[in-house]
Design a binder for these strands. Structure first.
Lengths: 133, 133
DNA sequence: TTTAGAAATAGTAATTATTACTATTTTTGA
DNA sequence: TCAAAAATAGTAATAATTACTATTTCTAAA
């Protein structure tokens, strides 16, 4: 039951810390293979889940059926670009008050919320503008 | 391309309108079979997607990897019970202001948001209370 | 330093939700 | 009534993820 060190887990976490684009398990797998060629996909999934359970990374579920992972565990939100599908960080204060509002309209007990935003990312906005020129 | 009537689609929608618990495609399938025994699962999926695209029902994605469907298309939120997994309606005003707040912290253009709450539903709250007596 | 047992791995198979395919049936407008 | 378009049932395929198992790695204690 005790956690043991594994080089694979370390490589997975190190890789995730270099990325700000919230990669999927498959993307982690493809990239980590560059420096650890015979790591298995199951190992990537198992360690991403383990790290998420430990709170060392965050699992993002943005409704498209694929889990994404974020090495930044600080409290922040995300925006999904409808044009390119990218997931961009949104650094803003936690919207805790909406949990309070929800509780006033609910018979049980509300403990938290999940939010993600959707729209158009900076890059796709720029592309649209220059296309109009 | 023109939409044609289908009895199966009608039965699916009629069933969904009787339910307030946001059933999954499989739950719809199992129940609709009672009155339409040889309907196929593919037909249920296709029609739920079609009805959602038409805006006649709403598709809910609550991060557990299973789509749920709601015949109530009015603007409201949902709470997922961590004890029993039920999905309960939360009738409260739309939290449009958070989209504005998010836009102030984002370089692109935010157009909307998805929220769901999690906590303990009324029934599970009651069970916990009576267990303590 | 050796070693034994626990934990982790690689590789593969299985699972689950969903979509795609196709021959047949149903719907509907002329 | 009839023909083309749309929908269906039944089956196969897909995609993401989890489970299984023999082997390897890690680590604490001798």
């Amino acid at each position: 039951m005790a956690l043991k060190y594994s080089r694979q887990r370390q490589v997975i976490k190190d890789f995730l810390m270099t990325r700000k684009d919230h990669p999927t398990a498959d993307t982690v797998y493809i990239n980590v293979r560059h420096e650890y060629p015979n790591i298995s996909l199951g190992t990537v999934y198992r360690n991403l889940s383990l790290l998420a359970d430990l709170g060392e990374i965050t699992r993002l579920r943005l409704g498209d059926g694929v889990d994404r992972f974020d090495a930044d565990t600080s409290n922040h939100y995300h925006c999904v670009c409808k044009e390119c599908g990218s997931v961009v960080d949104l650094n803003m204060d936690s919207l805790d008050h909406i949990t309070q509002i929800a509780n006033q309209h609910f018979d049980g007990q509300i403990q938290g919320h999940v939010i993600y935003f959707h729209g158009i990312c900076k890059d796709c906005c720029c592309k649209k503008c220059s296309a109009k020129i």
